[in-house]
Amino acid sequence: MGNLLTKMITDYMIAFGVVLGASLLAGIAATLTLQPPSFTMQEVAKNVKIWAVVVAIGGTIDPLRLIESNVVDGHLSPAIKQILQIISAFIGAQSGTTLMLWLSNGGNSS
């Protein structure tokens, strides 16, 4: 269980960092090219979210194959662990996106 928790926290932080880093660097690039950085940061945060999940889980289709093969073989525990890791990565990407929207004032409805 400790290894699973470690992997979930790592996946969360990787996905969070991918969104955060990509958005911040896109904001810098927008500033250098005289574009509105807040809009650019918001768009990049939204668009890079799925890729952050892919990066966090390993960047390949193997985790999905692992789920499929374990379910077919009747071994649910490894499949559930892999699904939890994917969910953790998604939550990290969503957290990063939400933070970037707040930081760039995109979360402000007024």
Rank of each mutant, 00 (worst) to 15 (best):
91 I>Y: 05
85 Q>M: 01
96 G>K: 08
62 D>C: 12
79 A>M: 13
68 E>F: 11
31 T>D: 12
50 I>S: 09
108 N>T: 03
107 G>E: 06
109 S>M: 13
33 T>D: 15
49 K>S: 10
85 Q>I: 04
99 L>T: 07
67 I>L: 04
51 W>G: 13
87 I>A: 06
80 I>F: 07
42 Q>A: 02
20 L>F: 14
23 S>M: 11
56 A>M: 04
9 I>F: 14
89 A>L: 00
75 H>I: 13
106 G>D: 10
37 P>G: 10
24 L>M: 10
18 V>R: 02
61 I>G: 01
97 T>Y: 03
86 I>L: 06
7 K>R: 14
66 L>G: 08
96 G>D: 11
46 K>M: 06
103 L>E: 07
56 A>F: 08
34 L>R: 15
54 V>N: 00
73 D>G: 11
41 M>Q: 12
44 V>F: 03
35 Q>W: 15
67 I>F: 06
44 V>I: 12
24 L>G: 04
58 G>K: 00
40 T>P: 09
77 S>G: 04
47 N>D: 03
48 V>G: 09
89 A>T: 03
14 I>L: 13
95 S>L: 05
47 N>A: 15
87 I>L: 09
15 A>C: 12
41 M>C: 00
57 I>R: 01
104 S>V: 00
7 K>W: 05
29 A>I: 07
80 I>V: 10
17 G>H: 05
